[in-house]
Design a protein around this nucleic acid. Structure first.
Lengths: 142, 142
DNA sequence: AAACACCTTTGAGTGCACTTTAAGTCAACC
DNA sequence: GGTTGACTTAAAGTGCACTCAAAGGTGTTT
């Protein structure tokens, strides 16, 4: 636990977090990630940066946009007074993501039914499929 | 059921299916949707078209790309011999969507715990995963 | 007659999140 | 001493899925 902080240069760090060096510099431009510099002006990152990037990738993974991410980072920099606002952002992101999942699952259900129909597992959709078949004839002409 | 087929012109149809007239014409260019024409060359759509657009929107909703959708439609036009391939496409789309959901839920879990942490509820959840808790502690804003 | 909704083709614009290129410098490693 | 990997800024390119504009046309409704 009491080890000397490891330093990672951008190439190594990129591999560790699963982003490209381009993206990392882009994120830095955007104010999402910070780096430190050595005496030659070369970026380096620490284990804390790995955790931070991991966290923002979780937020991104739930559908948060870069603009919101920027806002979140700015709020964080302002201190504890912004916690309620940050909490609200996360809550909204969560709610949105859950709505997305629910919608996705609804679409998936239709897809599953269609697959079942292909497998001949569905009998009550004959009427549906016949008109659908008729419909598709229109695509045959040209 | 033996009613005269209703005809919808593009504006009305667009509202019914929730797409813009631009998008509808774009989809037609791409071969995803077909329309019929009256004696003046004006597009019209039927109830069957509503169902068809509904279906492709379900496929889109599960993450299928327009290119794949185009491929699907072309296969469909080729007849029953392409059913295995179409089935496989749907299966892959389904598997991908399910993987997306799983990933999303993983990210959501991190988000949820962060919200709990903002709420000071974290003490109660130490029990289930100490290392996960430690992991999340790293994100404690300071 | 004006307003409106539709038609055509072609091409440009939008938004997001990168991704790459250019052109030049610098320093470490083999 | 050449390759590698880093640095800089600014700009252009990519991919997807639209979205809109231009410019001129037809037909139907008020």
């Amino acid at each position: 636990m009491a080890e000397v902080q490891r330093h990672y240069r951008i190439g190594e760090f990129a591999k560790l977090v699963g982003l490209s060096t381009y993206t990392l510099r882009y994120y830095e431009d955007q104010g999402l990630v910070k780096s430190q510099r050595d005496e030659n002006g070369v970026r380096y990152y620490t284990d804390e940066d790995i955790r931070w990037v991991g966290f923002i990738l979780h937020l991104k993974g739930t559908g948060m946009r870069l603009n919101d991410l920027k806002r979140y980072v700015k709020l964080r920099a302002k201190g504890d007074a912004t916690i309620p606002e940050r909490r609200a952002m996360l809550q909204k992101t969560k709610d949105d993501a859950e709505a997305d999942i629910a919608e996705l699952q609804m679409h998936l259900q239709v897809l599953s039914r269609k697959i079942d129909w292909y497998d001949g597992k569905v009998d009550q959709t004959i009427a549906d499929s016949e008109s659908f078949h008729d419909y598709l004839q229109r695509f045959n002409d040209k």
